[in-house]
Simulated scan of single mutants.
Amino acid sequence: MTSRWTRAQDLARSRSVGALLITPGADLRYLTGYHAKPLERLTCLVVPADGDPVLVAPALERAAAEASGVEVEIATFGETDDPYALVGSLLPADAVVAVDNQMWAERVLAFQRRFADVRLAGPLLAELRMRKDPHEVAALRDAGAAIDRVHQRMGEWLRPGRTEREVGADIGRAILEEGHEQVDFVIVGSGPNGASPHHEVSDRVIQEGDPVVVDIGGTNAAGYCSDCTRNYLAGGTAPREYLDAYAVLEEAQQVQREHARPGVTAESVDAVGRQVLADAGLGDLFIHRTGHGIGTETHEEPYIVEGNELVLEPGMAFSIEPGVYLEGRYGARIEDIAVCTDDGLEVLNNTSRSLTVL
């Protein structure tokens, strides 16, 4: 982890930032390996642009921090001590500080009272986090294989007569059984519910012939996420309109996978698939971006969306997930996680992308 925070220091100096202040969340885990609990007591990694980082933590959390293997000094405070004063004692009063993007508002306000210039650290840390090293790619590969194994078992649970909620509960247990440390989300969108991209589960009973969108993901022990969407038919026969749209969607996602590689822009990956759908008269049914970066968070940089002129580089990992959604009738989405190699693309999800009839 040392190389990560030393690179963060280099970037901080280049942006005239005196220190990074990082509280529990993906940034802290990325920089230290510590998956700290987000408690009402302050835990904050202080990364000065020059000098050694210090983890400020409640005394009762020292053992947990040490057990995580953090490689920085730990400074603790007692129940009646002021942790913000402790952070302030580690930095000059006129320091320019950058706080993690997900820091709680009360903590941001407390640091604003202590430091004159408080900025966001997110843009700086995103430059580090969106370029995965070989160990991170291996962790993402492991997560992708684990979620593939869950999709391969879908026939155990998804069938007419069961509710989305019942199926979702079984999927959640399988996500843990197949190698994840936690369940991040389970979407089971049957029939018209599939037309809502972020529908989760409901008490709707799955009917024979229902197209079902299943989008699932979790986090493995290394702290890296999976995210994969496949589409199923719960017996019977799907409407011809749906089958025709699905064939175009498969083509669009394939075109995007074949296009994505180092040297092309993020927005171009979105554009090539969107054009396939538009040419078939389905462009208005693709209502979201093509993808998002993935790593220690399910959604992070880089975003695969119109307007993002970022040029893809080796180590960048992201989803490719075009979809079509016809409100009140059905939806479909095909999603893979992929990572740019030195000269191409490695796709980390490898189950069938075709409509699977159960």
Rank of each mutant, 00 (worst) to 15 (best):
L277P: 10
G291T: 13
E300H: 05
A278I: 00
E313N: 12
E241M: 14
G291A: 13
G295V: 02
D244H: 12
R257C: 01
R240E: 15
G273H: 00
T265L: 04
D279H: 02
L243F: 00
L249M: 00
L277N: 01
V311C: 02
G307W: 09
G307T: 02
V324M: 09
F318D: 01
G323V: 14
E321Q: 15
V269R: 04
E327S: 14
I287W: 08
A280F: 04
G283L: 09
V311L: 08
T265K: 10
L282H: 12
V255G: 04
G283Q: 07
A317T: 11
E321H: 06
I304C: 03
D284C: 03
L326N: 14
R274K: 11
I287P: 06
V276K: 13
E309G: 12
E301P: 11
L285S: 09
L312V: 01
G293I: 02
L285R: 14
E301A: 15
E251W: 08
E251V: 08
G283R: 05
F318W: 00
G273C: 02
E327L: 11
T296K: 02
E309S: 15
V255Q: 13
V311R: 06
A280I: 06
L277S: 10
Q253W: 03
A247V: 02
E301I: 08
R261E: 06
A260D: 03
V248H: 02
L277A: 09
T265Y: 00
S319T: 14
G315K: 13
D270T: 02
G295R: 06
V276C: 11
G307P: 09
G307C: 08
V272F: 05
H292G: 01
V272S: 08
V311K: 00
Y246I: 03
T265C: 11
V255P: 09
Q253K: 11
D284R: 08
P239G: 04
V269M: 05
A260C: 10
A260L: 12
V305F: 03
G273I: 01
R261Q: 12
D244I: 08
L249R: 00
L326Y: 09
E300R: 03
A247S: 03
E306N: 07
A271V: 11
A260G: 06
A245R: 05
A278W: 00
G283S: 13
H299K: 12
L282A: 14
Q256M: 14
L243C: 10
E267T: 04
Y303G: 10
I287D: 00
Q256T: 10
E300G: 06
R240I: 07
E313I: 10
T237Q: 15
A238F: 01
V264M: 12
P302L: 04
A278S: 13
H299M: 13
